[in-house]
Amino acid sequence: MPPLKAATDPGWVSTLMIELIANNVLLLFLAIVAVAVVRVRQLLVSVMLFGIYSLLSAAIFVVMLAADVAFTEAAVGAGIATVLMLAALARLPGEKEEARARGQFWPLVLVVATGALLIYGTIDMPGFGKADNVAHRGVAMQYVERAPKETGIPNMVTSILASYRGLDTLGEVLVIFTAGLGVLLVLGGVHTKIASPLRPDAVGIRDGERRG
């Protein structure tokens, strides 16, 4: 790692403070929105809040110097995922989450215990933003040094994604293809309904089995 030249720049400290404050405040917003998403019972409100949650996380990615990730999260996470959820809601008329008091205590205990263990695990982690973090050594440093020269692409993220790890990206495309195929197979074709007290009109496979 080259030495921090910015340390001599007087304007650097204040910029860093603003970055840190923006990061911390946005993270706090994110936690608040996440709680709201879970607590709200109307599904449409929940989905829209989830869109806000994704957009906030995109803003955090910008603050944390991950411009490419921020673009993708804003377009794919906040955009496509929200649209997909709204499209799904449009096909679920009158759907509403039922308020049940049942089974809220033990999940909370489990979650608090797991969270406490995970927080205990972070104590030994290298501090946020430290340049001597082990994650920045080894292969990551090699990419930073060699990627712009070897590929001629100024954006290192692009050169790693499309050139060095091109096969991984091909695998990713395969995953998207499989998911698309799955959606078409699940939603297309002949639909059979399972007869139930909630759908007395439905004559489905279960009925057919019983008759046969």
Binding site: L4, A6, A7, W12, L16, M64, L65, A66, A67, F128, G129, K130, A131, N133, A135, H136, V144, P148, P154, N155, M156, V157
Partner: peptide, 11 residues
């Protein structure tokens, strides 16, 4: 991945 005082990984 964040580095204090660093910049976006674009040359």
């Amino acid at each position: 991945g964040y580095v204090e005082g660093g910049t976006v990984p674009i040359v």
